[in-house]
Computed example of a mutant assay.
Amino acid sequence: MPKKSKLLSLVMSIVLLFSVAFIPMGVASAEEELSEEDLELIELLTAIENMPDEIILQGEDAIKAHIESEVSFHLELNENGESVVFRAASVSSIAGCVGAVGTALVVNFTPAKILKIKSALKSVGGATKFVKAVKPYYQMSREDKLSKTASLNQAVRLAAKDAGPDTREALLDLFGVSSVVGSCAAAFGN
């Protein structure tokens, strides 16, 4: 093997070794173990992601029934369309976020929009990957002194950065509902 090839091979090996050894801390933090609260949000988003199209096309009652059959909590809507979440597990700030997302989905979105949200969750790698990415991006945005709304919008955009514009828009629509912003901001950080 010529000297130049050996040298090039050695340099490339060193570069590869250093790139793996020194992964940026922001990337490593996205791989941290998920809390029970994060898992509850993932549970709801997974129910949306895996919802059969025929159920979505049946409308609000079928969507609500499907969500309730797939998650470990009961979602009720009062006369004002606001969510009342009955939890089997401990009540936390994420409970408000989960309830707000569930209510927004059932009350605020047409079947066509829900199909886009479902597709968007799949295209960003699924609910787990999405939640793992949103939380640190949200916290980073808040540290940069952005408002809760701007931080959540930026976090969703960054978490869906590899997806197309329609995907980002569908997720921004879901997480842009004012009740979702208010509830999820507390769940993702400050």
Rank of each mutant, 00 (worst) to 15 (best):
P2Q: 06
K3N: 06
K4N: 07
S5F: 02
K6A: 00
S9R: 03
V11S: 02
S13F: 00
V15C: 01
V15M: 01
L16C: 03
L17P: 01
F18D: 00
A21T: 04
P24Y: 13
M25H: 13
M25G: 08
G26T: 04
G26V: 01
A28N: 04
S29F: 09
A30K: 09
A30E: 10
E31V: 09
E33R: 09
E33L: 08
E33H: 04
E36K: 07
L39T: 09
E43Q: 06
L44A: 06
L45K: 04
T46N: 09
T46L: 08
I48W: 03
E49W: 04
P52V: 01
P52Y: 00
D53T: 14
I55F: 07
I56L: 04
L57D: 12
Q58T: 09
E60R: 15
A62M: 07
K64Y: 06
K64P: 03
H66Y: 15
S69V: 08
V71H: 02
F73C: 03
H74F: 06
L75I: 07
L77K: 08
L77H: 08
N78W: 01
N78R: 00
E79H: 05
E79K: 05
E79F: 05
N80D: 13
N80P: 01
G81P: 00
G81E: 01
E82H: 03
V84K: 08
V84P: 02
V85C: 00
V85G: 00
F86C: 02
A88D: 08
S92F: 05
S93C: 05
I94K: 05
A95N: 15
A95T: 15
C97S: 00
V98E: 11
V98K: 06
G99E: 02
A100N: 04
V101S: 08
A104W: 07
L105T: 14
V107D: 05
N108K: 14
F109E: 03
F109D: 02
F109W: 05
T110F: 11
T110A: 14
A112E: 13
A112D: 11
K113D: 13
K113R: 15
K116P: 00
K116Q: 14
L121P: 02
S123E: 15
V124R: 12
V124C: 11
V124W: 12
G125N: 03
G126L: 10
A127M: 11
F130E: 10
F130S: 08
V131K: 12
K132Q: 14
P136K: 08
Q139I: 09
E143W: 05
E143K: 14
E143F: 07
E143I: 04
E143N: 11
D144V: 06
D144K: 15
K145I: 10
T149Q: 13
S151A: 15
N153R: 15
Q154K: 15
A155K: 11
R157C: 04
A159D: 10
A160L: 10
K161P: 00
D162P: 04
D162S: 14
G164F: 13
P165I: 12
D166S: 14
D166G: 14
T167F: 11
T167L: 10
R168V: 12
E169T: 10
A170H: 09
L171P: 13
L171G: 14
L171T: 14
L172T: 06
L174M: 14
L174Y: 10
V177E: 14
V180D: 12
V180Y: 11
V181K: 10
G182P: 07
C184N: 05
C184G: 05
C184E: 04
A185Q: 06
A187T: 12
G189K: 06
G189C: 08
